[in-house]
Nucleic acid binder design. Sequence first.
DNA 1: GGAAATATGTCAGTTTTGTTGACTTAAATT
DNA 2: AATTTAAGTCAACAAAACTGACATATTTCC
Lengths: 166, 166
Amino acid sequence: MAKKPDGMKNGDDAVCDRMSGDGEIDFEMIELLFFAYRDFISDPDAILAKSGFGRAHHRVVHFVNRDPGMTVADLLETLKITKQSLARVLKQLIDSDYITQREGPDDRRQRRLYPTKAGRELALELARPQSRRIANAFGGKEDDMRAAAVRFLRGMRNARDTGGEQ
Amino acid sequence: MAKKPDGMKNGDDAVCDRMSGDGEIDFEMIELLFFAYRDFISDPDAILAKSGFGRAHHRVVHFVNRDPGMTVADLLETLKITKQSLARVLKQLIDSDYITQREGPDDRRQRRLYPTKAGRELALELARPQSRRIANAFGGKEDDMRAAAVRFLRGMRNARDTGGEQ
DNA sequence: GGAAATATGTCAGTTTTGTTGACTTAAATT
DNA sequence: AATTTAAGTCAACAAAACTGACATATTTCC
């Protein structure tokens, strides 16, 4: 057996009872969110694997397509990552012609970000299976469920930045 | 200015119109899920930063606490990562006495995983702010919203494994 | 008009978390 | 007795984040 180095003691401090919420903690929702998100991103992951891009590229392509002309600073705020972390991914997307930059009209320091046609197509291709999964989750009667899900998910977001970037 | 290496051409193929769903694609929900999850994991992340652990440790501690006695194979199935990836993280948690192992009662090849008291406390500490965030998202009238959210999130999960591990 | 702040980019090094592939060990199964 | 299974381990590698320091062009502010 896998080398029992006797880090496997027997009979001291193992806790054996299932950790239950007991009204205090909402483990059901915590786990549902984990599993839902895990599978939600597995769809685009599979597509991206073929083109050599990853999740980080997906997020950039998505938000630039949703808000063409956004600045690098906007994108950093949305993704909540560092400039250096974004740089690598963004450069790859620009070099492979999925995204282009334009000087800001007022402020020439800015690099406004736009998708190319290829970038737009990629964003749509990645969104499609996710959208299908969502529609499927709503089942037949979308309306009530959607309204509740929207309110719930909005409420999950940090209050201070819901008005901010987008 | 940040060295315009003329990767910034001007006047070719930038797409300028916002990518909208147009009935076909559910961008609203896609983004709500992204933002909700981004902020949902920021709470435990902040706590973990202090103790030198990361998200991977969080997930392991969580599931072992929820289902004490689970095998390594169970955990791999739940997390959908490789054995080698789990190994590093699990070893650290065992070495720092948050998790212990016991021989399987029937099958002595198995290493059943249990939290220690410290592990149980850590799991609860991490779950608390997430649970508060969820309660907050439900606002006053929890009942209708919760039922809808549960159905929605269940539906987001891959069908084939909802019956499987747990 | 010159100093300071801002937007972006870049260099270099590190950490976390995942991957693949090959191999070992002990126990269970056939 | 041979094979399969559960778990662990070694080594190399890759993606995606991080920190800190510094450069450059432009705008803003006094």
